[in-house]
């Protein structure tokens, strides 16, 4: 490697042979060194994901049986009776279902206003700003809000309060992703629809929403997968129970809160059950995410 310094340009102007000289040692060293550093740091960045997936499968899979998915949790320290997390799976599905019922109409209709009618207006951009800010509110603060609005007024921890908190987490995600989806529909299609005499309702639903539906669906699925994994809004709204969920007005178990409670438990069986819950949760969440991203990559 040559270490000869590059002469000052004014001297070297005429010397064409300099063009063929290799880079100075310092510049080569800097280039190679930075490339190496960037690769090492990027390698560090993907290491945790692989470690998490590996550990979740390694520690979660041994206890995964049909009983685990369908039975109630065994009381701590008891042996010889079926141990499961069926109530947590049902509770999570119940609360996410109700949260979806509350948040999907609000999110999609709000996005329709922002994309179709409010674009460029002060109201439209103001509302969009507020919804973006809402998406950054920590989910634990959403939990405090749901506690005060529902748990405090009804005097009981309940699945309803959990669903309400999850719905508030979901609304901005659905609104912003639907907004992006609607923007992908060419304006010409809206104009053509109006020119044929369709009113705004018809144009919006028959032309715009129907052609953006795959992308809206994937955005909504991503919001649902986020809600399935949320813990902070549930720990003091839905709370937890080791029994089957009984309607929306009782404390309701969920996979995420079960993992939190059992991770800190002194019983090894409960720690193991937390890993199994994590396996179920990661499986659901990653399936939704990979599927959605493949669909999104195809449409863009």
């Amino acid at each position: 490697m040559s270490t000869s310094p590059i002469p000052h340009p004014s001297v070297s102007d005429t010397d064409a042979s300099l063009i063929f000289q290799p880079l100075s040692f310092n510049r080569t060293f800097f280039s190679r060194g930075m490339t190496g550093l960037a690769f090492v740091l990027s390698g560090l960045a993907i290491l945790p994901l692989f470690s998490i997936l590996f550990e979740v499968i390694k520690n979660g899979l041994p206890q995964l049986t049909l009983d685990t998915l369908t039975q109630l949790p065994a009381p701590a320290g008891m042996e010889g009776i079926p141990d499961g997390l069926g109530n947590c799976i049902i509770g999570t599905l119940m609360m996410v279902f109700l949260a979806s019922l509350m948040s999907i109409p609000i999110g999609i209709l709000a996005a329709i206003y922002l994309s179709e009618f409010g674009q460029g207006s002060a109201i439209g951009s103001g509302i969009r700003f507020l919804i973006t800010v809402l998406s950054g509110v920590p989910s634990i603060v959403v939990g405090l809000f749901a506690y005060t609005v529902i748990v405090f007024t009804t005097k009981t921890f309940s699945g309803l309060a959990g669903s309400f908190a999850l719905a508030i987490v979901m609304v901005p995600i659905i609104t912003l992703s639907t907004l992006e989806a609607l923007k992908l529909v060419p304006t010409a299609q809206r104009l053509a629809s109006s020119a044929l005499g369709a009113n705004r309702f018809q144009t919006t639903f028959k032309i715009v929403v129907s052609s953006a539906l795959p992308v809206i669906t994937t955005g909504t699925l991503l919001a649902i997968s986020r809600a399935i994994g949320e813990t902070a809004p549930l720990i003091f709204t839905a709370l937890f129970t080791i029994n089957w969920p009984d309607g929306f007005f009782q404390p309701t178990p969920s996979l995420s809160v079960m993992i939190y409670n059992y991770a800190g438990s002194p019983f090894i069986e409960q720690n193991a059950m937390a890993w199994t819950g994590a396996l179920v949760l990661v499986f659901i969440v990653l399936c939704i995410n990979i599927f959605s991203r493949l669909v999104l990559a195809k449409t863009r």
């Binding site: 998490i52 979740v56 720690n271 890993w275 995410n289």
Partner: peptide, 19 residues
Amino acid sequence: VELIAAIPSVIIGLWGIFV
């Protein structure tokens, strides 16, 4: 790398405690 954002934070906490 973006998939890490999809992992629920309670699972990252579980991995933090035991791994």
